[in-house]
Amino acid sequence: MRLQSSAQPVSLLVLIVAQSLCAAFFLWDVAADGLSLGLLAFATSHFVIELLAVLALIAGVVFETRFLMDLLRRKAHLEEQLGLAAGAFHDIVEARFDGWSLTPSERDVAHFTLKGFGIAEIAELRGSAEGTVKAHLNAIYRKAGVTGRGAFVGLFIEDLMSTPLRPPEVAA
């Protein structure tokens, strides 16, 4: 089942590629100016403004790339279960994962664990060895400050009971 068409990530991807090309071109331009002027370049307002503009553009590309990766992770996890409640719960889960600074792979394993998959199943789903999944799980439990799967899932049950699951009404 697909949550939505993939139009949103695709247009974001095209934008990232286009802006990367622009950034590369202007960076080249600024570098050429800098090399020909030497240290004096930093005394000319034109050069400094150009440099700041290029750096802002690069920062934008980095930010968009991170946003795209977050978006794709979210889609990957939500595609298996439709619904507004799933989306709201997903946000709670993501906020927890952010707090523990889980890596992308650890996040994925943690999601599957919450859904009740075993180590062998997760390894199969992710195309990795069972030992790798065990290592991810150990890191997840350590970062979450729990001793095992039961306590880990319990953390989220607690959240579920104290947080209203319905997001603001959206016209369907």
Binding site: V10, R73, S105, S128
Partner: peptide, 15 residues
Amino acid sequence: VIGQLSDIATGRKRL
């Protein structure tokens, strides 16, 4: 393309 990027984003290995 989005499928491959999703694999990279989630750390999944689909060869």
